[in-house]
Design a protein around this nucleic acid. Structure first.
Length: 820
RNA sequence: GCCCGGAUGGCGAAAUGGUAGACGCGGGGGACUUAAAAUCCCCUUCCCGCAAGGGAGUGCCGGUUCGAGUCCGGCUCCGGGCACCA
């Protein structure tokens, strides 16, 4: 006890109890004053970049889910610091974009006024949570100094040929009045407002993320990420191995056309009895016969008018015959060419070879339009000409039939052999197709970084020169989007009229802003260099601090944010700006917090407001309780009733520390448990098994205070270090009480002695025929024979054993199993 | 339909193939107190039994093993991802 006047040694009396509010205020102020949490980024040794997904500062304030994630992140960061790393734990705000703007529109406050207010509120709440955040590197995506470089990133992609503009069918949300990326459409409705999405033809900016599909897929094998997240990305990228096959359209006089299809089943090509093009396919006009033109045109118009949801949900097969035929390169037969909306222009080549015998959709279509159905694959014991009542999609153990020289091959062999055979005449080539589409980044909205492009009548599309960045977002009074598909920025004439940077003639600015996901696709690069105004990221700092050591966030960003970040990082790598191509070495998705078994929502009225709990229980208790609810990666069930148990634990720790004696010796049995606890907590925290680490500390507490014993300082002090990542304020206060100098987080992690951690006497389970019949106390190094003798000396065990056991299984330190 | 997770006491949950239910909540009993709160101790999966002890038990059915919550095969239900993707 450093100061006996403030820490009396008697447990009862007027010992100052644990008062979290005072302790937390004191240490938060001291951390700020001493810059405890602002590491020297240039010189700090063993850098560890502990990143959490930055929040978007909603008007409702910090959500419990945010705090759950941040706390779990913070504990890992603090633990790494105790392990001797220089830990950088930054925070920022994802405050540009539709989510923020929609809320501003709803409450009728201009976003430029509302957002700073929300950020201020978030900052206050985050501060109270006791996070080890380096506030000197705080950023917001709305900062001029930030989005200048978001625009710079756009220009990098543009110069690299990875940003392009095209007129395309895009997802249009009639409520948000903007274009959405495919990733923002869920089941045909806008993920944000749940309004059914419409199809519109608009000029949009896209990023060629599809160019990176193979690498985005392949690298998934090398990064240390949650399996669920990698699976989600794998599904989203959606690689399909197959072949492109070319069918020659039967010459109708003056021209020849080739139709290239994509198929994953080239083994079934002998059963391709017709072709189908997407209604939007560019060849449709050219191949359609005059007598069919009217019908085909009508069908195409109907398809174009149809909204995306009904096209994707209405599975009834419709179509129109073009009148054209094409040659199946395998059979040499002429087969009809149809158009149908079940074939999608945006996947593969927008054309398919239909194999009704072995594809359910084709089968249905063939039935509707009375097209021939041929069996070319047969499972074991199935006749080669067995009739087909439905598509036979069986592949395992099936063989190819009615396919000329390929008859009898299994499906896999047939795929390669048939493609090789067709490749000989140039009719086929093996190819991998991806489900992933290019990333549409244009948004016809106000609250975002203007896309840095200028259109000049003489020079065409001109990128804004880097020296002119940022293209500042002007103040526009009325930011409401309208149905025109044109951004509110287009109403600000003085802003969008601009001289061409190349020829100086009258030109106009691009009035779309970029997608929020572009803001968040590179923020981790900005944090260490946030003070630099002349570069997006400092070369030396970036080399030292990136890639991110540990990234923690929600799995709702498994495909959107995480995929875009990887893409942008790869592009910057390829352009030589950075020397790594994966931004996050380790990623773990945290689970979700529910309340009393139910999802939290405003309508249910069961939303946990962090402020209230922190006031009542203290931030340390709240943090520890959140982590105690369940496995961090699985989430937990927040129940008000449970929090008292954690508070009781911290109260007991407080008393143990303030009452601890310095006289006499620590007890060996207690030290043994202590060292087991040090090992357990040290194992559990890095794997985010926080709940079991807390349980282990509680278990130790039960030993430490068993009966009414007064613990020794040597028994308590290391526990204060173990608990520090969870209850940082309390740990600092107690550490100081012990006479510790500086922050407990610079004191390191207690070492554990394996010899001491090992039990001297242990309990061996004794089974007879695998059934537990009793336990025996034995020394650690007991032999099998010794254990056997001890076991048979127990009447309750011996009564199950007549004569010598047939077999004895001895697992040292664990159990003895006698087989009789 | 395909691909990932998950299912364990009254509740939140623990368990490298080796004593199922650690830790915590709730509940019961006790100590201290005039009393209450706080604190400390004991009990708390279910069934039979005064007890010693015995039996059953980790969503369901089967298997591997001396031994299965854990591994394998086949299901059921719940959560999530993808889905007219050729």
């Amino acid at each position: 006890m450093a100061d006996p006047t403030t820490t009396p040694s008697r447990p009862d009396a007027e010992a100052p109890g644990y008062e979290p509010a005072a302790v937390e205020r004191k240490w938060q102020a001291r951390w700020d004053a001493n810059r405890t949490n602002s590491p020297d980024l240039a010189r700090g040794e063993k850098p560890f970049y502990q990143l959490m997904m930055f929040p978007y500062p909603s008007a409702e304030g910090l959500h419990i889910g945010n705090l759950y994630a941040f706390t779990g992140n913070d504990i890992h960061g603090r633990f790494q610091r105790l392990q001797g790393h220089t830990v950088f734990e930054p925070i920022g705000y994802d405050a540009f974009g539709i989510h923020s703007e929609n809320y501003a529109l709803k409450v009728g406050v201009h976003p430029s006024e509302l957002i700073p207010r929300n950020i201020e509120n978030f900052r206050r709440q985050l501060h109270r949570a006791g996070l080890m955040v380096d506030w000197s590197h705080e950023l917001s995506t709305t900062d001029r100094s930030y989005y200048k470089w978001t625009q710079w990133i756009f220009l990098q992609l543009y110069h690299r040929g990875l940003a392009y503009k095209k007129r395309a069918a895009v997802n249009w949300c009639p409520s948000c009045k903007t274009v959405l990326a495919n990733e923002q459409v869920e089941g045909g409705v806008c993920e944000r407002c749940k309004t059914p999405v419409e199809q519109r033809q608009l000029e949009q900016w896209f990023f060629r993320i599809t160019d990176y599909a193979p690498r985005l897929l392949k690298n998934l094998e090398t990064i240390d990420w949650s399996e669920t997240t990698r699976t989600a990305q794998r599904n989203w990228i959606g690689a399909s191995q197959g072949a492109r096959v070319t069918f020659r359209v039967v010459d109708d006089g003056d021209r020849t056309d080739d139709i290239t299809v994509f198929t994953t089943r080239p083994d079934t090509i002998f059963g391709a009895t017709y072709l189908v093009l997407a209604p939007e396919h560019p060849l449709v006009d050219a191949i359609t016969r005059p007598e069919r033109r009217a019908e085909v045109q009508a069908y195409r118009e109907r398809a174009a008018r149809q909204d995306i949801i009904s096209r994707k949900t209405n599975r009834e097969k419709t179509g129109a015959f073009t009148g054209a035929t094409a040659i199946n390169p395998a059979t040499g037969e002429a087969i009809p060419v149809w158009i149908a909306d079940y074939v999608l222009m945006e996947y593969g080549t927008g054309a398919i070879m239909a194999v009704p015998g072995h594809d359910e959709r084709d089968f249905e279509f063939a039935r509707s339009f009375e097209l021939p159905i041929v069996r070319v694959v047969a499972g074991a014991g199935v006749e080669p000409h067995a009739p087909l009542e439905a598509a036979d999609v069986e592949v395992a153990g099936a063989r190819v039939v009615n396919s000329g020289e390929f008859d009898g091959l299994n499906v896999e062999d047939a795929k390669t052999k048939i493609v090789a055979w067709l490749a000989g005449s140039g009719a086929a080539e093996p190819v991998t197709t991806y489900r992933l589409h290019d990333w549409c980044i244009s948004r016809q909205r106000y609250w975002g970084p203007p896309i840095p492009i200028i259109y000049c009548e003489s020079c065409g599309t001109v990128p804004v020169p880097e020296k002119d960045l940022p293209v500042e977002l002007p103040y526009v009074e009325d930011v409401r989007p309208d149905d025109s598909g044109i951004s509110p920025l287009a109403r600000h004439e003085e802003w969008y009229h601009v001289p061409c940077p190349q020829c100086g003639k009258r030109a106009r600015r691009e009035t779309d802003v970029s997608d929020t996901f572009l803001d968040s696709a590179w923020y981790f690069l900005r944090y260490p260099s946030s003070e630099r105004d002349d570069v997006p990221f400092d070369a030396a700092l970036t080399r030292k601090w990136l890639p991110v050591s540990s990234y923690i966030g929600g799995n709702e960003h498994a495909v959107l944010h995480l995929l875009y970040s990887r893409f942008v990082t790869m592009v910057l790598h390829d352009m030589g700006h950075i020397d790594f191509e994966e931004p996050f070495t380790r990623f773990r998705a945290h689970g979700l917090i529910v309340k009393e078994g139910a999802k939290m929502s405003k309508s249910r009225g069961n939303v946990v407001v962090p402020d209230r709990y922190i006031e009542q229980w203290g931030a340390d208790t709240f943090r520890t309780y959140l982590m105690f609810l369940g496995p961090f990666e699985e989430g937990g069930d927040f129940r008000d009733a449970g929090i008292s148990g954690v508070r009781r634990f911290l109260d007991r720790l407080w008393r143990s520390a303030t009452d601890a004696r310095r006289d006499g010796e620590p007890e060996v049995a207690v030290l043994r448990k202590l060292h087991q606890t040090i090992r357990k907590v040290g194992d559990d925290v890095p794997r985010l098994s926080y709940n079991t680490a807390i349980a282990a500390m509680m278990e130790y507490m039960n030993v430490l205070r068993a009966g009414e014993r007064t613990p020794h300082v040597a028994e308590v002090q290391p526990l204060v270090q173990l608990v520090a990542p969870f209850a940082p304020h309390l740990a600092e206060e107690l550490w100081e009480g012990f006479g510790g100098v500086g922050s407990v987080f610079d004191a390191g992690w207690p070492s554990f002695d394996p010899a001491l951690a090992a039990e001297e006497l242990l309990t061996l389970a004794v089974q007879v025929n695998g059934k537990l019949r009793g336990t025996i106390q034995v020394t650690r190094d007991i032999s099998q024979d010794g254990a056997l003798a001890a076991a048979l000396a127990e009447p309750n065990i011996a009564k199950f054993v007549q004569g010598a056991p047939k077999k004895v299984i001895f697992v040292p330190g664990r159990l003895l199993n006698l087989v009789v």
